[in-house]
């Protein structure tokens, strides 16, 4: 899923300050699961913005709703935003973008989109994939070095590894983990294969994906 986090209130306020009636739109898919964009957070942010604006002497009004998924045109279609002069999206970047496309008013992001991640238990996620377009997980025992290594390097730990920890001190060394897991899987020889520099062109090629055409649709 896409992991997101709410922006600082001041930043959000500065975006919506010049409007008089703002609709907060939550997203009940990734953003809700990331505990940042569901109905609960929409409600909380509305109260927070009301309070902040009132203290600033502004009269901006805030209402809220939640879409099942903001990155789907059909879900957005049903959004009735006529009385509002701005939208504040509690979705990921994709949601903000699609909302902006269909709205005839400014759409602002209330969240920062952080990474593609997996749950680590209650209220905790870890980045697991960088959507690089060329998956190497098959060679790295399922641990993504592009994502989990701070430098995203592909051929083993750098000299900064410190007791199995990354030199940045905020995570275990992905390459030590990869090495250990390859050993556990009795595939240590996989480590020896030199992984070539990444084909970054796929990131450019796949700025869109359309399977609807002839031969493409599944």
């Amino acid at each position: 899923m896409i992991v997101v986090r709410q922006k600082p209130v001041e930043e959000i306020c500065s975006m919506v300050a010049r409007h008089r009636n703002v609709l907060l739109v939550g997203c009940n898919t990734c953003a809700a699961v990331a505990l940042a964009g569901g109905e609960k957070e929409v409600d909380t942010l509305i109260e927070l913005l009301k309070l902040t604006m009132r203290r600033k002497g502004e009269t901006t009004e805030f209402s809220g709703c939640v879409l099942q998924r903001q990155c789907e045109p059909e879900f957005i279609e049903h959004l009735d935003d006529r009385v509002y002069d701005a939208i504040l999206s509690l979705g990921c970047g994709a949601g903000v973008a699609l909302l902006s496309e269909s709205a005839d008013k400014p759409v602002y992001p209330a969240l920062d989109t952080l990474f593609i991640g997996a749950s680590q238990g209650f209220a905790s996620w870890r980045a697991e994939c960088s959507a690089c377009g060329k998956c190497v997980l098959g060679q790295t025992a399922g641990i993504c070095p592009v994502t989990r290594c701070a430098k995203g390097i592909l051929n083993g730990p750098c000299g900064g590894v410190n007791n199995g920890q990354c030199e940045l001190g905020d995570r275990p060394c992905a390459w030590v983990e990869i090495y250990d897991r390859l050993e556990t899987l009795e595939r240590p020889e996989d480590f020896k294969e030199i992984i070539q520099p990444k084909d970054n062109s796929v990131k450019t090629t796949y700025n869109k994906l359309d399977l609807s055409g002839e031969g493409g649709a599944r």
């Binding site: 609960k40 409600d43 909380t44 509305i46 109260e47 927070l48 009301k50 309070l51």
Partner: peptide, 11 residues
Amino acid sequence: VSEAAVLDALQ
């Protein structure tokens, strides 16, 4: 008592 409930009470 949710975050929103506290903020609402203050308003």
